[in-house]
């Protein structure tokens, strides 16, 4: 008889070391029983978020507390919204595409964002770009990014030959194409216009526009709310398309719906703060091992909370300990890029 060796299921890549505790056996037992309660693990993350937020808002206030609260409150809100969008969308994207080393940014969100900005500066000029109604700009960015990614996804996933590798390849090729095109246009810009664009090219969490922040928050909240009833279906999608269909999930429709939510979240937050590439990858994979289960009602909130902790904690350390400003996104992208390489290399080694 024909035997096809089935490869062992992929192991979650990051594994947290078992908590070794220096406590007495009884305390250790108590600790491990407590740790087994998944809801409590998430609650613990929630507590960390609250503590970090408190530290961020209330410590090291140079002048008036009210003023500091106002400024920092906005940044904090931006972090919460963006982190939630990135964490949630990456986990969902992983499940619907059946892989754990890509993020939705593979669909070219960041490259597209820069391209749109550049095209606007190129055609309308830097001054009008800066004077452009941010609301209109944001709206254009979100609409174009969502439309583009949904078309791309439908093309790559709706057809007969759906493949992750094809999607990865097309994503990389298009991303490179957009970037070269962007660069080519930027070469022809004057230095001032170029500077304006360079600033747009890095994620910036500080001083977000209030209206845009509110709009993004609403979009992300709506997407998250729409996601809640789909969490059990996401669990089934973990099994892959054939098994999910066998269990009665209308696969194509559900996946398209989920992908649209993902792209709305990513597009809205990218349009708000700028490109965020690898960040989601770290938090999603951390979430898989921290949550200790594949169930999305645990992994999704865990990823969102871990994303908040990463952003907020990173910002605190950089700003208060090292007195750096505005470098957080660079650090996160660097760390994320290294992490991505490790994942790819480890996969390749097996």
């Amino acid at each position: 008889m024909l035997t096809e060796p089935t490869s062992p299921p992929d192991v979650a890549v990051v594994t947290t070391p078992p908590t070794t505790s220096p406590l007495t056996p009884r305390a250790a037992r108590w600790w491990s029983r407590w740790w087994d309660r998944r809801g409590l693990r998430i609650a613990l993350l929630g507590v960390v978020v609250v503590v970090l937020a408190g530290l961020y808002l209330l410590t090291d206030v140079p002048g008036s507390l009210a003023y500091a609260l106002k400024i920092r409150g906005l940044t904090l809100a931006a972090m919460l919204v963006v982190a939630t969008a990135v964490g949630v969308s990456t986990v969902v994207f992983h499940t619907i595409t059946q892989n754990r080393i890509l993020t939705p940014s593979i669909m070219g969100f960041d490259a597209f964002y820069l391209l749109i900005s550049t095209v606007i500066v190129f055609t309308a000029g830097a001054t009008s770009f800066l004077r452009f109604d941010p609301l209109v700009l944001w709206g254009i960015q979100v609409a174009v990014m969502v439309a583009f990614s949904v078309v791309l996804f439908t093309w790559l996933f709706g057809g007969k030959r759906r493949s992750i590798h094809l999607m990865l390849l097309v994503g990389i090729v298009l991303g490179t194409l957009f970037r070269s095109f962007t660069e080519w246009m930027q070469r022809m810009l004057d230095p001032v216009a170029f500077q304006v664009l360079s600033d747009a090219g890095f994620a910036s969490l500080t001083r977000p526009d209030r209206t845009l922040l509110a709009l993004t928050a609403v979009l992300v909240a709506l997407a998250c709310a729409a996601l809640i009833p789909l969490l059990p279906t996401l669990d089934v999608l973990t099994l892959g398309e054939p098994a999910a269909i066998g269990l009665g999930v209308s696969h194509r429709r559900t996946v398209m719906l989920l992908f649209t939510m993902v792209s709305v979240m990513v597009a809205a937050s990218t349009a708000l703060v700028g490109p965020i590439l690898f960040f989601g990858l770290i938090v999603a994979n951390l979430a898989y091992s921290y949550a200790g289960t594949f169930r999305h009602r645990f992994t999704v909130p865990t990823a969102a909370l871990l994303a908040v902790i990463c952003l907020l904690g990173g910002q605190l350390v950089l700003e208060r300990v090292f007195a750096f400003t505005a470098t957080l996104s660079t650090v996160i992208e660097f760390a994320g890029g290294m992490f991505f390489l490790t994942l790819v290399l480890r996969k390749g080694a097996r």
């Binding site: 096809e4 089935t6 299921p9 973990t238 099994l239 054939p242 269909i245 066998g246 009665g248 209308s250």
Partner: peptide, 21 residues
Amino acid sequence: SAQLAKTLAVLRQDNHIVARL
């Protein structure tokens, strides 16, 4: 599809799952 899933179950030839279950 959801109704058929209560009448018919299929075990496929190969079952690869990305996550750990």
